[in-house]
């Protein structure tokens, strides 16, 4: 039930905080999503969506760093002399 799916905001509609929405592209499926909990979200952002509400803006830099870190795990060990 805590499932949240990432999608990309294509456009934003409305000004009022409680009813502001975005059209979000989930890999080809477009849905209207509330942006009431992500007031700073703009078109182009990836958001995590749970039950029709965007609950966070995905941090691109952090996402990349996590993957880079995992890529390098074994290289780091080799540099430190293995074992």
């Amino acid at each position: 039930m805590c499932l949240a799916v990432p999608g990309k905001i294509i456009s934003i509609h409305g000004e009022d905080l409680l009813t502001r929405t975005g059209r979000v592209d989930f890999d080809g499926v477009i849905k209207e999503v509330s942006l009431a909990a992500t007031p700073e979200a703009t078109a182009g952002h990836y958001v995590l969506v749970h039950a029709g509400l965007a609950i966070s803006i995905v941090d691109e830099t952090e996402a990349r760093q996590t993957l880079e870190y995992l890529q390098q795990i074994d290289e780091l060990n080799n540099e430190l002399g293995g074992s």
């Binding site: 039930m1 805590c2 949240a4 009431a36 909990a37 749970h50 039950a51 029709g52 509400l53 609950i55």
Partner: peptide, 10 residues
């Protein structure tokens, strides 16, 4: 859980 509380509040 807490994840769903904001959208229910909204």
């Amino acid at each position: 859980f807490e994840t769903t509380a904001p959208v229910n509040a909204l």
